[in-house]
């Protein structure tokens, strides 16, 4: 597999606080890489390093095959577009002028393609309206339009749906999928809204306390987030005993709820539970969510 971005024991410390704790991650070329982690896990810090906004304490990374210590790293960065935290826009300029400004900064020879980009992000009819008067969703789309200038190979979007309304979220999601499929652009999308990420990501990196906990493809994740049977019982401690005896994989959710990962005969289970003195209230088919999987990665109560 070809990787567009890799890190090697990347570490960032602020005094005694370790923001990145020896991160090793690999972003496959052509993927939509869902960078998952709760607030403060280190997502934005890593993205800042990728973008050259911060310097690591130790470790290294490679962007498009160029090492961070190489003087050509700036040239490699010309092939990326980024919306880090908030979109970088000139508020007193129109959408078109903002794109022209980015074209100039990138040293592009002409303004060809600006109308096409504006059309792509749905901002072609904004005319002389200044970017400062755009809605949050429009600003986010303008930020992506700016990032798209110069046909980048990699787009980095840090919490792209933050503050957007449901319609705006759908628009951004469709735009990302379209760009990935039609233009082959690799995306790194950081988010803590897992449900949203699960709709678009083809690859995942889970980060916690400055470490990559797991990296996996969407297909692998789908296998992990497999169907289960959710049981509500009078006592999950008794359930655990029964399941351990039967050798069935399970996850305790709370004192009365558990998920079991096996086809089971209800009559058999019911008898075992009755013998153990535990009542079954309900049994439903259940699909483990990305959230549940993520929590289990962070040290949940999953057992095998």
């Amino acid at each position: 597999m070809e990787y567009i971005f890799t890190t090697n024991n990347l570490e960032k410390k602020y005094g005694n606080f370790t923001a990145l704790n020896g991160i090793n991650m690999k972003v496959p070329k052509g993927s939509i890489y869902g960078f998952v982690g709760k607030n403060g896990a280190g997502k934005t810090t890593l993205i800042r390093h990728l973008c050259g906004l911060q310097h690591q304490t130790s470790g290294s990374f490679e962007l498009m095959g160029v090492k961070d210590s190489d003087k050509d790293i700036s040239k490699a960065r010309r092939r990326i577009g980024a919306v880090v935290e908030s979109p970088a826009i000139y508020k007193d300029m129109t959408a078109k002028d903002n794109l022209k400004q980015q074209y100039l900064t990138l040293g592009l020879p002409s303004f060809d393609g600006i109308d096409e980009i504006l059309e792509l992000v749905g901002l072609s009819d904004t005319g002389k309206k200044k970017a400062g008067k755009f809605s949050l969703g429009m600003r986010q789309r303008l930020g992506i339009a700016i990032a798209l200038c110069g046909n980048p190979d990699l787009l980095i979007l840090d919490e792209p749906t933050n503050g957007l309304d449901p319609q705006g979220i759908i628009e951004i999601r469709e735009l990302i999928i379209k760009l990935n499929r039609e233009k082959g652009i690799t995306f790194i999308i950081s988010s803590h809204i897992l449900d949203e990420l699960s709709r678009i990501a083809t690859y995942y990196g889970f980060i916690d306390k400055g470490r990559i906990v797991k990296e996996m493809s969407a297909a692998e994740l789908e296998k992990e987030c497999r169907k289960s049977i959710r049981m509500k019982v009078s006592d999950t401690k008794v359930l655990a005993g029964v399941m351990d005896k039967l050798g069935i994989e399970y996850t305790i959710i709370d004192d009365n709820t558990a998920d079991i990962f096996s086809e089971v005969a209800f009559s058999k289970i019911a008898k075992d539970f009755e013998d153990a003195g535990c009542t079954i209230y309900t049994m439903d088919e259940h699909e483990e969510s990305l959230e549940a999987f993520y929590l289990s990665l962070l040290g949940g109560t999953k057992n095998a």
Partner: peptide, 15 residues
């Protein structure tokens, strides 16, 4: 404040 410096560096301009 508008993130312009951030954007310039992120897209390949040297500091």
């Amino acid at each position: 404040t508008d993130g312009i410096i951030r954007n310039k560096i992120a897209t390949g301009s040297t500091r």
